[in-house]
Design a protein around this nucleic acid. Structure first.
Lengths: 205, 205
DNA sequence: CAGTTGCTGTGATTTCTGTCACATTGTGAG
DNA sequence: CTCACAATGTGACAGAAATCACAGCAACTG
């Protein structure tokens, strides 16, 4: 595994420590990686794939917060790991995904010894906090049409493709909306020449 | 100032360092402490009073995220301070407020030297992240009536009073709603015997 | 006390979104 | 090809909330 390329800032000693202690795990598309209320015992580094971090409410509704990709770490797993607390979110693999699980016992040590790790943790907090702020902005101030555009752009940005392979139902779930609403809004976007609609796929133009 | 009582976990050496370097600042009700886009040069510890952390959008709407009280620290100022970045939020004193401003230059040093500081920072991140999660839950899954109840309870919890001195307009602003909607919902709550309404004041029962 | 100002109550209307019902279309299995 | 099923399109309706219009009421000012 050449996961070190994803974290070029880490010093060799830190990489050695991680390699010696971390466990590699693999998930397939749809696998649930972390569940609301679950006890956390490791910090997660993403090597490959794409993890969806979302919130679930008791009535079956769900709400996408953000994605983690290669080189990202789960901020929540870091916080919870350090304090040995439970998580309040769901994490699910969107595609084939490989992660490194670092036992929480190492966290304190790594924070103290390695400046690059400490900075990486801070950077991770900052990024996730910002993403969460963007999410709050969207649901607080924007209507569904704008939220949908934001969603599609973010999705395209991640995969850097012009093609988004999602059904309307999946999008509706992520936005905690309903399929009909999404279908209608997408049709309007098509009429405005922003997208082209295909089966199970949306093309940005 | 006996601010040390608010942070009993800090070791004497850390307290000494803070006392030597931090600047005390005072704000009156309504003073803006931090503005969107403003450059951050200090980490803020709250000694007394109450600070409202909220988001503003370009069309004049605002949206309350959470409050900071005595013993709290501003997570955003910590993150931004460490990375010398700008903030994306507004902070405003809700009442007479005293804070300690710790220059960012000290942050790295304190994180390395003092385990209690490091743990305090982590604890702060965790708390704010959780609060933000609760906010997301509310706007994503709840209607205005439930959000209003949550808002009132949180407000009462903070001040540990049964009396909430706010106009309907202020509440509407915090929830990014309109006065009429809030008035109507409060009336309904009064009919359900959850509150009593007075001028500029709401009484929880 | 009269006048002004700000807070609250309430109806009418509109927009956005969610829900139900059902039609249509694409795709793969047999 | 035909059937079955999943994805999509669309109309009708319902409910939440924003907006507009205006009335009543409390509190302060001079």
């Amino acid at each position: 595994m050449d996961w070190k390329k994803l974290f070029p800032q880490f010093e060799p000693e830190l990489i050695g420590l991680i390699e010696k202690n971390a466990v590699e795990r693999v998930f397939n598309a749809g696998d649930v990686i972390m569940r609301t209320g679950q006890y956390i015992k490791s910090t997660v580094l993403v090597m490959e794939g794409r993890i969806k971090i979302y919130r679930e409410n008791n009535e079956g509704g769900e709400f996408l917060m953000y994605y983690l990709g290669p080189g990202d770490a789960c901020a929540i797993s870091m916080i919870c790991a350090i304090q040995s607390q439970t998580s309040e979110i769901m994490a699910q693999a969107e595609e084939y995904t490989e992660v490194l699980m670092i036992p929480i016992q190492l966290m304190d040590d790594m924070m103290n010894k390695f400046k690059t790790w400490y900075q990486f943790v801070i950077q991770t907090y900052r990024s996730r906090f910002d993403e969460l702020l963007a999410v709050v902005d969207n649901i607080a101030f924007r209507n569904m049409d704008e939220r949908l555009e934001f969603y599609l752009k973010r999705h395209a940005g991640r995969t850097s493709k012009k093609l988004i392979e999602l059904s309307h139902q999946q999008i509706a779930d992520d936005l905690n909306s309903s399929r009909e609403v999404i279908s209608r809004l997408l049709k309007k976007m098509e009429q405005r020449n922003l997208v082209k609609l295909h089966r199970n796929m949306i093309e940005l133009v």
